[in-house]
């Protein structure tokens, strides 16, 4: 790996979906490079390809063409097991709809990635508990998702994303299902995660949310429309508010 290689490098990535006889071009040639410990917001109108891009970044989906180099490795050359390992070790996902197992306790939900990491039961419990405590849910370990508020569920999901110590946190509209106050609390968590040295990439519709990021990428019709650093003043102002 060359010392200058970015954490994430996309070269002319396209993604087509076949809908019957029609082909939907969700991504039409995206070039993107993200360095370690960036804090990026991806914005754009509905259907512009944000989620598609996130799924590719998270190795949940594959580009139709183009290259994706993650941490110096060309992802398209990897098999299912290797991709699963990357999702497990390097990436933490946070979804708009939380995506927790409804019948499992918060603790069990957070332990899930550790099961696939081959961690022993005791160690899993310990680390899951620590992760839940770090998002302020130390007193909700045995609650199941239906017994938690939306904000609390999203905290469980964030704990699950953090528990394997991945370097990249991908969040697709993490505040989309939350009221603005709860959303702000969740954003404070991401801010902290970023300050701890992680790379945070989040998708959002809302300018208020995007302002937390240090770099804003706008996409439209499957192409990057603009890519600019976020103005430091707004960030400063927001951080003061906390």
């Amino acid at each position: 790996m060359s010392p200058h290689s970015p954490l994430i490098l996309l070269e002319q990535v396209t993604k087509d979906y076949r809908m019957g006889s029609e082909i939907v071009h969700a991504l039409r040639g995206v070039d993107l490079s993200i360095e370690p410990n960036e804090y990026v917001a991806i914005m754009g109108p509905s259907g512009s390809g944000k989620s598609t891009l996130m799924n590719i970044l998270g190795c949940l989906d594959w580009p139709t063409s183009g290259r994706y180099i993650l941490d110096g490795t060309d992802v398209s050359s990897l098999d299912d097991a290797a991709l699963a390992r990357i999702r497990n070790q390097k990436i933490g996902f946070v979804f708009q709809t939380f995506n927790l197992l409804p019948r499992a306790t918060a603790l069990k939900n957070v332990e899930l990635p550790l099961i696939y990491a081959g961690i022993s039961a005791d160690e899993r419990r310990r680390r899951a508990q620590a992760a839940l405590e770090s998002v302020g849910l130390g007193d909700r370990l045995r609650h199941k998702p239906p017994e938690l508020s939306g904000g609390q569920r999203q905290r469980v999901a964030i704990a699950r994303a953090l528990v394997t110590n991945p370097s990249i946190i991908l969040a697709d509209e993490p505040t989309g299902n939350l009221d603005s106050k709860t959303g702000a609390e969740i954003m404070a968590l991401f801010e902290r995660i970023w300050r701890e040295g992680n790379t945070v990439i989040l998708v959002t519709h809302e300018d208020d949310i995007a302002r937390y990021a240090r770099r804003i990428i706008r996409i439209r019709d499957g192409r990057i429309e603009s890519d600019a650093p976020n103005s430091p003043e707004t960030v400063e102002a927001l951080t003061m508010q906390q």
């Binding site: 699963a84 999702r87 497990n88 070790q89 927790l100 197992l101 899930l112 696939y116």
Partner: peptide, 16 residues
């Protein structure tokens, strides 16, 4: 189905 998706997202292989 959703559970399968969740498990895959957090690191389950097809074989898992």
């Amino acid at each position: 189905t959703k559970e399968i998706g969740i498990r895959r997202a957090v690191g389950a292989r097809r074989s898992s």
